[in-house]
């Protein structure tokens, strides 16, 4: 075997120079082998430009198409209002200050609902991931719930709780809890099995293993679950607000949308859709995206974001 012979010579040379040159050899090898991070300023600027300019370009294009469809009178005015009309509508609610009431009513509900969902879903996810019996029993149920549109719960919630905040929170929870729990389960399932073993040989007891190894290792999956959970909270809330409308509940964005429909005011409806979209995207961009990016970048997984 020729490979064998060359092996002999490497080892022999290395052992003779061992003591003298190993310092330099180790240092040189480290320098040669260390992964080089592409961290040029030009690259970062280009990436920033792409991530900001590309979406702006897309929005401009969509509005341009919208404007030309409207100008061509493709659909009647009450079905497709001018972009400018919708903008005026948004300006109007902003100037009258009504928009802040709308936003506050909806966003504080979504945040409270999401927070409750978080508190419920985290232990649930841990149980699902770590107790086989629990997973066998309710795992499929939770996954099924995730694909059930939460708007389907609105009639039931209204019959259970009447037109109250409790009904709305019920719908939000049923929408968000399965996503967050499943995210945590996926995060824990994807932990490389070597890490818990390492934890054991480093002397971690069960509680320490959960705190110092399982939870941080599952964090990327958990965060993805939280992100999806927020999207589901917001969606479910809008469904609930749109259907369960009552003066006692206050006017949120869903109710505003419903009012627009009742007034046959298409520009109001589109303004409502626009605001709902903005809040959803805004929270995602302001809270979840930076959080996710920080976590993934710290682990060298930032290629995708």
């Amino acid at each position: 075997m020729p490979r064998h012979d060359s092996d002999v010579s490497t080892v022999d040379t290395a052992s003779t120079v061992d003591a003298v040159n190993s310092d330099a050899a180790v240092e040189g090898l480290d320098r040669l082998d260390t992964p080089v991070a592409p961290s040029g300023r030009g690259l970062r600027r280009r990436r920033l430009a792409r991530s900001v300019l590309a979406p702006i370009g897309a929005i401009v294009l969509i509005i341009a198409i919208w404007q030309s469809l409207w100008a061509a009178a493709f659909w009647p005015e009450y079905q497709l209002p001018a972009p400018l009309d919708v903008w005026r509508q948004i300006l109007e609610v902003t100037e009258s200050g009504e928009v802040w009431t709308l936003l506050w009513t909806s966003v504080h509900r979504a945040v409270i609902g999401f927070a409750i969902a978080l508190v419920v879903a985290t232990p649930l996810g841990l149980l699902l991931a770590k107790v086989p019996l629990v997973r066998a029993a309710i795992g499929p149920l939770i996954s099924g719930l995730q694909s059930l549109p939460s708007v389907a719960w609105v009639p039931a919630a209204v019959l259970w709780f009447g037109l109250t905040d409790a009904a709305i929170y019920t719908v939000v929870l049923l929408g968000a809890v399965p996503s967050i729990a499943n995210g945590l389960v996926a995060g824990i399932d994807h932990i490389p099995p070597i890490l818990p073993r390492v934890g054991k040989v480093l002397g971690a007891n069960k509680l320490q293993a959960a705190r110092h190894i399982l939870l941080p290792a599952a964090l990327p999956g958990y965060l993805a679950g939280l992100k999806q959970g927020w999207a589901f909270s917001w969606r479910s809330l809008m469904a609930a607000e749109l259907i369960a409308t009552s003066p006692q509940l206050g006017v949120g964005l869903g109710q505003y949308l419903d009012n627009g429909k009742n007034l046959s005011d298409m520009s109001m409806v589109m303004a409502g859709i626009g605001l709902i979209f903005l809040v959803g995207v805004g929270i995602e961009l302001a809270v979840f995206r930076p959080l996710e990016r920080a976590v993934l970048r710290a682990r060298g997984l930032s290629g995708a974001v």
């Binding site: 040989v201 480093l202 320490q208 110092h212 710290a298 682990r299």
Partner: peptide, 27 residues
């Protein structure tokens, strides 16, 4: 408790090199 090393380094990817060495001491 013997010191154990595996084929993979299996360092905790969320900790720095120093944080990884500190982990057993923290535990």
């Amino acid at each position: 408790r013997p010191a154990v090393m595996f084929q993979e380094a299996a360092l905790m990817p969320w900790l720095t090199a120093s944080g990884n060495v500190e982990l057993p001491l923290r535990l």
